[in-house]
Simulated assay, not measured.
Amino acid sequence: MTRGANVALTREIPGLTRLVVGVAWDAGSERVLDDNLVLALLLCGPDRTVLSGEHVVFFNQLTSPEESVVARDDALGGDQEQVEVDLARVPPEVARLVAVLYVNEGTTQRRTLGQLRSVSVVVRDGVDHRELVRSEDLAPVLQAETALVLGEVYRHGGDWKFKVVGEGYATGVSGVAADFGVPL
């Protein structure tokens, strides 16, 4: 799927109740970059801001408060990192789940997402892990960005849809935090 494209997940697959949102990347020989990439899922309300600091799932906070979103220990199917989503348990005040990839700013050596050979967001069925959606390679347009909004799973009427976003941030995770109201 290309940037901006969306798909009606639960309308197209009526029995879909669980998702796995993952990211696949190729950092080539850039081991420091490879070791410092982080996937985060932001649980946002209708105003596109996170509900609270507890509604950000990543390596330092492995579950959302109600456990509808959980970071996986081991990624499957060629993804480097994954987050599981139980759609039925997502609180009604959550309008969208925003997937973000960022370079952990704790590194002493400056790395950017522009050094990636490839990067794509993948949505899988949470039961059998078969691939449902894969974005186009988002890496070719990246340069100095250190954070990237990959895509979002969002409510549309009574259904869940997925949209590829591909929006980069040269200001890193702090730029994402400012746009989505994440307390740092």
Rank of each mutant, 00 (worst) to 15 (best):
T2S: 09
R3E: 08
R3A: 06
G4P: 09
R11T: 10
R11I: 05
E12Q: 15
E12Y: 03
E12T: 13
I13L: 08
G15T: 12
G15D: 12
T17A: 15
T17N: 13
T17E: 10
R18P: 06
L19Y: 02
V20P: 13
G22T: 06
G22Q: 03
V23I: 15
A24S: 14
W25V: 05
G28L: 01
S29G: 03
E30T: 03
R31C: 02
R31G: 04
V32T: 15
V32H: 09
L33A: 06
D35T: 12
D35N: 11
N36P: 10
V38P: 12
V38L: 00
L41I: 13
L42I: 00
L43M: 10
L43I: 05
C44E: 08
G45H: 07
D47Q: 09
V50M: 00
L51T: 08
V56D: 01
V56H: 01
S64L: 00
E66H: 10
E66C: 07
S68D: 12
S68G: 02
V69T: 07
V70C: 12
A71P: 11
D73E: 13
D74F: 02
L76V: 15
G77L: 03
D79A: 12
D79Y: 06
Q82V: 07
Q82C: 13
D86F: 03
D86K: 07
L87M: 06
R89T: 05
R89Q: 09
P91I: 00
P91A: 04
E93W: 01
R96W: 07
V98G: 14
V98E: 14
V100C: 13
L101A: 14
N104F: 14
N104L: 07
G106V: 02
G106K: 01
G106Y: 08
T107L: 10
T108H: 12
T108N: 12
Q109R: 12
R110L: 14
R111H: 09
R117K: 14
R117P: 13
S118M: 13
V121E: 04
V121S: 10
V121D: 09
R124G: 02
G126R: 03
V127A: 12
V127H: 08
D128F: 03
H129G: 01
R130Y: 15
R130M: 08
R130T: 15
L132W: 09
V133L: 11
R134E: 12
E136L: 05
A139N: 05
A139L: 07
P140H: 00
V141G: 15
E145S: 06
E145C: 03
T146H: 06
A147E: 08
L148C: 04
V149Q: 05
L150Q: 03
E152G: 05
E152K: 10
V153E: 03
V153D: 03
Y154L: 04
Y154T: 05
R155C: 03
R155D: 02
W160S: 05
K161S: 15
V164I: 07
G166A: 00
E167L: 07
G168T: 01
Y169D: 09
A170D: 13
A170L: 07
T171A: 15
G172Y: 00
A177K: 00
A177D: 02
A178L: 03
D179C: 06
D179P: 07
V182F: 08
V182G: 01
